[in-house]
Nucleic acid binder design. Structure first.
Lengths: 345, 345
DNA sequence: AACGGCTATTGGAACGTTCCACAGTGTTGG
DNA sequence: CCAACACTGTGGAACGTTCCAATAGCCGTT
């Protein structure tokens, strides 16, 4: 008895095995797999039967080699834990599948070095296009990657000539947030900003623009925070300790809003009685009843779909100039916003 | 002027281009890429310089074809949104990378058909091994896949002879939950169970076992719920409406606990004053101060690492019998559990 | 009877690597 | 001074497909 010493449990059948069994040439088997209608009924049946019996499965590696296409779109997410990206990835997988492509994901672990590694892996595997979700790398580095294949940046704005991008209109979203608060009667509306992080500057300028539009320039107040729970908490602490407490807070995203919420709760203030709070992103957890955060939602699945289209335009329609797509966000009203206590303060 | 009509922005250089430029054979270039120390200093320098100038990057597709190995471990997650899987995936990527492999993720969208599609993609791409996170497919179908490559099931128990598995000890975790409640003085402890869903039966039997061990057989009470917010809410509603309200609830997971929490809150009961609540899984959101759920945590990153090792044992060490690894869970105490109001009821 | 035009099928080259047997070229030691 | 051996480097086969030009067979037309 001879022991099988292969690492692989079973050697998989190749197109030649199928051809031999069906009594035809390998070319015909290949044709049956790709364009069955172009083969005679008898041959097709024989090939299909042989393939079935052997459990044949075309080797995508070999196919990719000769076609110089993998039909795979690589997706590098900066953070697997961010539920926002999960929704976007859904849209990406969906759209890719419908166009005959498949999506493969890899995580960057919120770390530019590891993100670089993830990209290299994708490049080695010769994916046909790349979508970067919330990348933390420098645009100039990403542009170098874009010289080799179509790259779309998602959730981050750029004016790059080499790169496509798709994102929500952060300025418009911020203005919607302010409009909502003003319509409730607020005027002392403070903003926690997240510095120069992706999307943060536009949210801040949208806030300022809307405040001016409502004649509230005097009340503009931006406090430095970050896109994290901690950043939101620190900024909120600073605001409370200043003694001058606004009636409403516009946080740069939901995580920061959550941090602010904790500090407001701990300070003995009521939300929204004393302070209204609005976030940005509409995380899944923001709709939990105990949280019930009013926020600005982004059309996540659409974002994913749009990103795939941008890649495919370059791949299948030879577009070679950059496109930057902007989609509108929308307000989601829940329980953390309401009219200020003293309408006439 | 001739227009470049290629779909690919730039044709990537091959090993032959590098060889020509460096004035050596392709074999030598290959050797420099794989075992640089076996090449003379001058040749190595020449090859490296040529590769650098050309921006050469070995084609993993071609390499995989000849080596019949892709050095990729496929990970099929049943749901990208489940933060539990995100942590596990971290462990997987980490461990795979350290062993020279790379992990590629794909989502099954909580749908057995699409999960099947994700697996087929992985199989076509000839990944070397497969890890399934919280799969929704029948074990018998997965066993067929396991005939072609090493497969590890994570977060789901099986006694399969063809498949490896790794999971936390759900029975032990459930017992820890009960032990904790009993040590606080509870005796009327009800359990919301999730039927036959993955892991649910063991959590239920662990609950019953612990109750018996504490001489509380008379108080055993399992109400049908599910692994979702909604399922938890429905079961909790049923419990409250029964008139016989226990002093503590052990939910089958954190999502269900969240649902129960909403119903308890809405019913005007205090947590943990009137009712203590304990979940299972330790989701990231469970540690938000407004939630602060006491729960049973699983060593997620370790689970991921262990899954990779199981795959690699088959791949690199030729193991061919199934292994089922169980890791112990641990209690995480937060604010939803406390002593019952009337210690002497 | 020869030919043109179909349709169905085939063999071989190509894709970009790795792997292996082998060929030079010194160097060492008997 | 030559056999043995390291050390470097090379050419060709192989991996499993797709693609393309070529062929075989058949039918109808002149």
């Amino acid at each position: 008895m001879i022991l099988e010493n292969e690492a692989n449990p079973v050697k998989q059948p190749t197109i030649l095995d199928v051809a031999e069994r069906a009594g035809v040439s390998k070319s015909l088997v290949s044709l049956v797999m790709r364009e069955p209608e172009r083969v005679s009924d008898t041959s097709r049946a024989a090939v299909l039967a042989a393939a079935e019996e052997l459990g044949y499965r075309p080797n995508a590696v070999a196919r990719s080699l000769v076609q110089r296409r993998t039909m795979v779109i690589g997706v590098v997410l900066s953070d697997l834990h961010n539920p926002f990206f999960a929704d976007v990835a859904d849209g990406i997988e969906e759209a890719a599948f419908q166009s005959g492509y498949r999506a493969m994901l890899s995580s960057g672990f919120l770390n530019p070095k590891r993100e670089r590694g993830a990209i290299d892996t994708m490049l080695d595997l010769r994916v046909d296009g790349l979508i970067m979700l919330g990348s933390m790398m420098k645009v100039s580095k990403i542009e170098k990657v874009a010289a080799a294949l179509p790259v779309t940046l998602l959730g981050r704005h750029t004016r790059s000539k080499a790169l496509d991008s798709v994102g929500a209109d952060d300025s418009a979203g911020a203005q919607e947030a302010v409009d909502h608060l003003v319509s409730l009667g607020h005027s002392k509306i403070a903003h926690i900003h997240a510095g120069t992080a992706a999307g943060a500057p536009r949210r801040r300028s949208g806030y300022e623009k809307a405040m001016k539009r409502h004649g509230l320039s005097a009340h503009i107040r931006s406090v430095r925070g970050a896109f994290t729970e901690r950043g939101g908490a620190q900024a909120m602490t600073e605001i409370l300790e200043s003694g001058d407490v606004p009636t409403a807070i516009f946080a740069p995203n939901d995580f920061a809003a959550l941090g602010a919420m904790e500090v407001i709760d701990a300070g003995g203030f009521d939300i929204p009685g004393d302070i209204s709070l609005i976030g940005y992103d509409d995380l899944t957890l923001s709709r939990l009843p105990r949280i019930a955060l009013t926020t600005i939602g982004q059309p996540r699945v659409d974002l994913g779909r749009e990103a795939v289209h941008l890649v495919l335009e370059r791949l299948d329609e030879n577009r070679d100039s950059a496109r930057h797509v902007v989609v509108p966000p929308s307000l989601v009203v829940r329980s953390t916003t309401g009219p200020p206590r003293d309408d006439v303060s």
